[in-house]
């Protein structure tokens, strides 16, 4: 079977497990697992205070801006991947001719 079909089936199964998750956990917020780990830390060590290393970092002022930056990250990456695959494909074709 073509690899593309297998990956397609895995992608469909992935979507299915998400919908199953929505049904199985009707109250789930689908927040980040990284944030949930923070709750586990608080449960284990209630007195722990995260310390500040004093290095200024930019905190996205809203969820929208955060998703903008994540989308930008994905877009830059996809652009690079697409550019080089297209370049090689075109180059191979012109060599064959």
């Amino acid at each position: 079977m073509k690899l593309e079909y297998i990956v397609g089936i895995i992608a469909i199964l992935f979507v299915a497990q998400f919908f199953y998750g929505v049904l199985a956990h009707p109250n789930a917020e689908f927040g980040g697992a990284d944030g949930e780990a923070e709750n586990v830390i608080t449960a284990i060590s209630p007195d722990y205070q995260p310390w500040n290393p004093g290095i200024p970092t930019f905190e996205p002022p809203s969820g929208e801006i955060e998703s903008l930056l994540f989308a930008l990250q994905a877009a830059i990456g996809s652009l690079i991947i697409g550019y080089f695959f297209g370049y090689y494909r075109g180059k191979n074709q012109s060599v064959q001719q």
Partner: peptide
Amino acid sequence: SLKLPSVTGSC
């Protein structure tokens, strides 16, 4: 960058 949802109810 892709935060994907999982069956456990978190991403």
